[in-house]
Amino acid sequence: MVSMELTGTSKEILSAREKGIVACTRCTKAWPMGTQVCGRCGHKLDSRDLLSLQRVWAYWVLGVLCYIPANIYPMLKTKTLFQYDESTIIGGAVELAHHGNFGIAAIILFASVVIPLGKFWAVALLAISVRHTSNLSNKRRLIMFEVVEYIGRWSMIDIFVVAILSSLVQLRTLATINPGAAAIFFALSVIFTMLSAQAFDPRLIWDKREGRGPEKT
């Protein structure tokens, strides 16, 4: 990536807030500090949305609460000629691995366990780090935010797999697959976690944390 030289001192990038400007996060237009609503797109202007952290935590808690039953209740109910089987998320992946499908088992485990847990951890860490002293560099926190933003939606893949299987495998007596209660909780958990991540105001990452110890970059 070719990057143009800064006109000023190369280290300084000033935030709009420090210049007395409030920016629209939706359409990037600048307004004088104190403007309430963006005149271009009608978005509500907030230099820093501190209430956002409360929304982050509220959705975060809901997401975690839904994730617990999502792992306790069965995700898939499989009925074949000889047996009736209820499998949880992790149980299903283990079963796949037993049959030698390590790749798919890994995808399922990654999308339904690693990503959700990683997201809870990352969002919590981000929300804590902007309020308290933290030894996480801005760069690290930016990477965490990007990962959460881009990968979070992919957890929904498990719900889609359940939907496809349940509609496809309806072979009367031979085999049927039906969704279990965990599917609802899992979908809710993904939605709440996405809302939680969306509520986070990433501009807080670069604010100097005055009186909370030295800034580390």
């Binding site: 709009a16 400007i21 004088p32």
Partner: peptide, 23 residues
Amino acid sequence: PPDRLASGLDHLIICPRCDAAYQ
């Protein structure tokens, strides 16, 4: 000065993610 700032705002772009201000 504040009055010139107001007219200069049209020539700015603010990063929506990190609030960095650019010409």
